[in-house]
């Protein structure tokens, strides 16, 4: 057996270790189909952030696409039936690469918990994201945000929803000057702009950042968001867990926590996910969902 393990590449070993981690907590492997109808992705374009897909005509003439994402298919196809489904997958997805000139095959491993998701399942998934990062045996950071924190603040500041997109763009780039400019152009008061800037740019080690975040709460929605983050990270090492409200999640899909994982020495995110109850609703499913994807090429590569 030992010699069998010796022939595995570090990437294959990491995949196996992640599988063992997920299986141990009761998650079972799920094999989604390779493609979906093109119109399914067209209808959910804002989740994919990119409308470019590899398409082809099936034998019956339907326009199909190679999967650019697995979570959407799982939310659509897995029947929850009022229970709880704990799944993980190892799949290739097809997206334009960073240059935007070619498609790339991206190896992804992901974990999804769907249906009757309660507090303990939410904490478990966050802990599994944390433990997945720890498997890389390199310094790591797990950053958390919550969609309701800034959306709650924007509601209390009465910022119309059509103006929020431009604000979120500046927030995602941690761009305070752009945020001030956009807020000013939208007619937001100086005090409102200052408060939004403070909340949106808030990031750092969890305990301190959450204390600050609580001080900036203007309504119950924001307070609930802070509480949900606190509960989800309870018991995790504070040095590696950060709060970062610049992490972006489309509200049509994401409903609560957002996760982002980083490894020192890598140039891109290696893990991302969150709570996506709104996507489940969109797919006509009852119950909530939370999950994350690990980008294996980034996670295991140089």
């Amino acid at each position: 057996m030992e010699s069998l393990l010796e022939v595995l590449s570090s990437g294959e070993l990491t995949t196996l270790r992640l599988r063992a981690l997920f299986e141990e907590r009761g998650y079972r492997r799920y094999h989604p189909s390779r493609f979906e109808e093109y119109r399914f992705y067209l209808e959910n374009q804002s989740f994919l952030k990119n409308e470019q897909l590899i398409t082809f005509n099936d034998l019956d003439g339907r326009l199909m696409a190679l999967k650019p994402d697995v979570t959407l298919s799982i939310a659509k196809n897995v029947s929850v039936n009022g229970g709880l489904k704990k799944l993980y997958y190892i799949e290739n997805v097809y997206r334009p690469n960073a240059t935007g000139r070619n498609f790339s095959e991206i190896r992804q491993m992901g974990l999804e918990c769907l249906g009757k998701v309660g507090r303990s399942e939410t904490s478990e998934v966050v802990r599994l994201a944390y433990e997945s990062l720890r498997l890389a045996e390199a310094p790591f950071r797990l950053s958390l945000s919550h969609v309701r924190y800034l959306s709650g603040l924007m509601r209390s500041l009465r910022i119309p929803s059509q103006l929020r997109g431009a604000l979120y763009e500046n927030i995602a780039a941690k761009n305070p000057h752009g945020l001030r400019e956009t807020a000013g152009a939208a007619g937001l008061s100086q005090e409102g702009t200052a408060l939004l800037e403070k909340a949106a740019m808030l990031s750092g080690p969890a305990t301190e950042a959450l204390r600050e975040a609580r001080g900036l709460c203007r309504n119950a929605e924001m307070e609930r968001a802070v509480e949900e983050i606190e509960r989800a990270i309870d018991g995790l090492d504070d040095l590696s867990v950060l709060i970062d409200f610049s992490i972006r999640g489309d509200e049509d899909y994401y409903s609560g926590l957002l996760l982002c994982g980083y490894l020192q020495g890598k140039s891109r995110i290696v893990l991302s996910g969150g709570e996506y109850d709104n996507m489940m609703k969109k797919m006509g499913q009852k119950g909530g969902a939370i999950g994350f994807a690990v980008y294996l090429d980034e996670f295991c590569g140089r």
Binding site: K174, P176, S267
Partner: peptide
């Protein structure tokens, strides 16, 4: 900066708007 060969960089907004790299824009 985007590829992590540099931690920080100083660059014109024209280039950021043209190329839209995935980086934080911290200060004007």
């Amino acid at each position: 900066v985007e590829h992590g060969a540099a931690d920080l960089g100083i660059v014109g907004k024209d280039i950021l708007e043209e190329d839209r790299p995935d980086v934080y824009e911290l200060l004007d």
